[in-house]
Computed example of a mutant assay.
Amino acid sequence: MQNHSQEIVQRTELFAWQVEQLRFSGDFYIYNPLQYAWNMHEAYVRTYLSHPVKALMLGMNPGPFGMAQNGIPFGEVGAVKQFLKLDEPIAKPSIEHPSRPVLGLSVQRSEVSGKRLWALMEEHYKRADVFSKEIAIVNYCPLAFMERTKYAKNITPDKLPKVERMALEAICDRYLMDLILLLQPTYLIGVGKYALKKLQQVVSSDSRYILGSIIHPSPANPQANRNWREKTQEQLIALGLWKDA
């Protein structure tokens, strides 16, 4: 099986640099974990994105207590430590929001979205090396945007001004397409409707891919707060990725 980890690492370094060159007019704190948490993200790529997979699962952008803390997509701290077993030094963004310090693997707050998603992967596959032979989990946009208010409200990329959003999406689309070509998945699964829309736009009408989505596990999504695990299992079975027990 061909190992693509070095190509993906190099492509991701370019991706991190490209998004860093963008400028945004909003009054935001902007975190780029592909920079300050690069050691952790590179370890994730080399360990879990090294070979072709059956499915690529796509999130939107870093959550404040997940990837923004440690550079791992949906990086709930317990899952990173216990399931993925990754531990690399994590620095800090150049400017931090007082309410959102980057504490790396010392963060005390759990990222609910990541906890739900990674717990489901662990329940199904038992071991991370088994999981990684079938699924790769990545985020569409690597940047976290937070309002300059006391509560540091998370701003998702779709809420950016149109011209700025389009410049960001052009870079993210190209990176996503390159990942798809390197990882060669059959299934492209959006975690939520925004991610599915991005996948649909990138691969257009290419019939090589089976596209679908799962309910976004965020507690801000009312659908996710009642039987998310069971609903998501049903969605993955219906897509044909998982078999019905």
Score class of each variant (00 low, 15 high):
81 K>D: 10
98 P>S: 03
172 C>F: 03
150 K>F: 14
120 L>Y: 09
139 N>R: 05
70 N>K: 01
2 Q>G: 07
95 I>A: 10
162 K>R: 13
108 Q>M: 12
241 L>A: 01
10 Q>W: 15
152 A>D: 05
206 D>R: 11
87 D>Q: 08
1 M>D: 14
78 G>Y: 04
174 R>I: 08
19 V>C: 02
132 S>L: 05
212 G>M: 06
18 Q>L: 12
15 F>T: 06
59 G>L: 00
71 G>F: 01
64 P>Q: 04
44 Y>F: 14
206 D>L: 10
203 V>D: 02
168 L>N: 01
45 V>T: 04
36 Y>S: 07
193 K>T: 13
112 V>P: 12
65 F>V: 11
179 L>Q: 05
235 Q>G: 02
208 R>V: 14
123 E>D: 09
2 Q>S: 12
191 V>A: 02
190 G>C: 12
102 V>M: 01
220 A>I: 11
9 V>R: 09
147 E>R: 13
102 V>H: 02
162 K>Q: 09
118 W>G: 02
187 Y>N: 01
92 K>G: 01
170 A>M: 10
25 S>W: 00
147 E>Q: 14
245 A>V: 15
214 I>N: 00
51 H>Q: 14
70 N>S: 01
114 G>Q: 10
28 F>P: 03
221 N>C: 08
187 Y>M: 00
130 V>I: 12
34 L>S: 00
245 A>G: 14
207 S>D: 13
74 F>L: 08
41 H>R: 11
204 S>V: 14
176 L>N: 01
202 V>A: 00
170 A>I: 08
35 Q>M: 11
138 V>M: 06
153 K>N: 10
72 I>W: 00
134 E>D: 07
54 K>P: 13
87 D>A: 05
221 N>R: 09
91 A>W: 13
177 M>Q: 14
155 I>C: 02
161 P>F: 01
104 G>S: 03
108 Q>Y: 08
52 P>D: 07
183 L>D: 04
165 R>I: 05
81 K>L: 15
66 G>H: 00
158 D>W: 14
215 I>S: 02
112 V>T: 13
62 P>F: 05
59 G>F: 04
71 G>S: 00
217 P>Y: 06
51 H>Y: 15
28 F>K: 03
107 V>F: 05
204 S>H: 14
179 L>G: 02
140 Y>M: 04
152 A>L: 09
232 T>H: 09
195 A>Y: 05
18 Q>A: 09
200 Q>Y: 11
69 Q>L: 03
103 L>M: 14
227 N>K: 14
210 I>M: 12
68 A>Q: 12
192 G>T: 04
176 L>K: 04
35 Q>N: 12
159 K>G: 09
153 K>S: 12
119 A>H: 10
34 L>Q: 01
57 M>H: 13
26 G>V: 04
166 M>G: 02
64 P>A: 02
135 I>D: 01
177 M>P: 04
31 Y>P: 00
204 S>D: 12
114 G>V: 10
138 V>D: 06
208 R>N: 12
37 A>Q: 06
217 P>N: 03
202 V>T: 05
62 P>L: 05
87 D>W: 03
201 Q>V: 15
66 G>W: 02
240 G>V: 03
208 R>C: 11
173 D>Y: 11
124 H>K: 12
99 S>P: 07
214 I>S: 02
41 H>T: 08
146 M>E: 10
175 Y>T: 00
114 G>S: 09
